[in-house]
Design a protein around this nucleic acid. Structure first.
Lengths: 299, 299
DNA sequence: ATTGCAATGCAACATTTGTTGCATATCTTT
DNA sequence: AAAGATATGCAACAAATGTTGCATTGCAAT
């Protein structure tokens, strides 16, 4: 049977050891972390191929993590997969999958399904815990600098927009011509840098986060992996999935995450926060910004 | 891609053929039916052992069911397992949180669930049809003006960003100080205005769309209702859900919709589009924009 | 500069994998 | 009962799998 020296699961072991892994082993570890399902479903050599690594590296990684060999990892992973697929009637899933087959409809269905899943997964305990911690951090901050470049920009923008209903603490970076560092000149330990980036990580985002961290500004990360360069810098990290059959990684779960985050901040703000929102909406109505006044259906 | 000779799933095929199977083949078939998970997780020989059958019987069964060999069965089963495992952890987390009752966890779970549902619902036939039509419209356009204000801005920005991988046809509006109409001065019937707005509709978006329509520019709407003021103006409308227990309507399904849209446009662009993307990524890598060069895992 | 050690590459290994061609057994039909 | 078809068993196959011992590289401490 499996040695089971400790109760640590494969991803936990990888995360724990990740920082001390050299390049090749790290690349292999990263792949496993990002594609946990493939571990039992693909041959080791195939995984090595996809991870861009030699087959032996996988065996060596397994050894380093405390297993006898990669086969042990595959067995543990298979057991986990079995458990995960328990409630699932093989028929329905397989049929659905096959019918969705190919063509435009297939692509659309695949994206909707997988991305939708990424959103739903935000309800996982570990993620919820981090979201709650993030909300606490933001709620207590004097100012919240929101930084997202390229694909992360829409997410940062949406968060800053949502926060603007409450007060003027949120500041959106990344709009000007590289003036972000200027804007952060007055940032301190009472503020927060909310940085958003997923693979392939935008260099400027990482650098800015690093700069902030060095200056003692708490960094809150929204990223795609517990071992992303952003997570390494941040004091807290919310991890979301960016998996998608599309030609780029999806930012949809990340957007959902910031919407949740904003809601949590509001919830923590209590009656006062709700008042602020009402006031903002009133104001917008008077400015004739909106065609129809917002109608609350579910408070 | 997969050949997809027929749309029948493995269990269906087995059931259909079961009565006409001889003893040994039937025993093998029975085992697969009872242990669908093991198909991809155990080697064929191991399954044969457990089923009390010789290994060749498995191959022969596969052939009889219309597959080239047992390996085909294992691959199909692996794909199904992947999907099943994806849905699991999300659902489990949700259930657990629900049992714990309300509070912050309850709010998070609710949002994740409902918003995730909104994303998944993009796969509804009616929506898919509109998405496909929208993709066709955009693919054929000379320029695509992307307009989203306030909550719609991140969505418009993301779409413009994704399109920028392909070419420079997409133009993001709403950034300047009310200069949108200026930017659209040269818009004509060969162009498209992609307008994004949900209740409460931003007045300026509607007005701009109306202006464009009057000038003969086709308007593509991404909005929350078939009877929204934007849909009334547009020649085509993609309808997404904005329902959320949050204090504002969610833009997450809308973001997913534009990601799908961009993917469809790429798909329609064929090899040429993929080349353009590759070239863009190459360019980004050379500019050192990204920390890690994008690594395609599934070509 | 040199030693030492960790990291990676390489060739080869013994196994195991899924499959095949042919022989034998079993059943069906006449 | 004979003939023909079908089902099963067997030995062997090439291909792929996970692993190993040793050589080479690269880096850090001396």
């Amino acid at each position: 049977m499996t040695p089971m020296k400790s109760a640590l699961s494969l991803p936990d072991r990888i995360i724990a050891a990740f920082d001390s892994l050299p390049e090749q082993l790290g690349q292999a570890a990263r792949y496993i972390l990002d594609n946990p399902n493939d571990v039992a479903l693909l041959s080791m050599r195939e995984q090595a191929r996809r991870a861009g690594v030699k087959p032996w590296t996988m065996t060596r990684l397994a050894r380093r993590l405390g297993y006898a060999g990669y086969e042990d990892i595959r067995e543990e992973s298979a057991a986990a997969l079995r458990r995960a697929a328990l409630g699932f009637s093989g028929r329905a899933g397989a049929q659905a999958a096959r019918e969705e087959g190919g063509g435009e409809d297939g692509l659309m269905t695949d994206i909707a399904q997988i991305v939708g899943n990424g959103v739903t997964r935000l309800a996982e305990p570990a993620t919820m815990k981090e979201l709650a911690a993030a909300a606490a951090l933001i709620s207590g901050a004097r100012r919240v600098y929101c930084l997202g470049l390229r694909a992360g920009y829409p997410v940062a923008a949406q968060f800053a927009y949502l926060m603007s209903f409450l007060d003027d603490r949120a500041i959106l970076l990344g709009r000007g011509a590289g003036t972000d560092l200027d804007a952060m000149r007055h940032a301190g330990a009472e503020d927060v840098l909310f940085a958003i980036s997923a693979a392939p990580y935008t260099g400027a985002t990482i650098e800015t986060a690093r700069y902030a961290a060095r200056r003692g500004v708490p960094v809150l990360a929204l990223t795609d992996s517990p071992v992303s360069p952003l997570a390494a810098i941040a004091s807290r990290s919310v991890i979301v999935s960016t998996d998608s059959p599309s030609f780029v990684h999806t930012m949809t779960p990340a957007l959902a995450a910031v919407e949740i985050l904003a809601s949590l901040v509001v919830a923590r703000g209590g009656a006062k926060a709700l008042e602020a929102i009402a006031a903002t909406e009133e104001q917008l109505a008077q400015l004739n910004i909106h065609l129809y006044a917002p109608q609350r259906t579910q408070p």
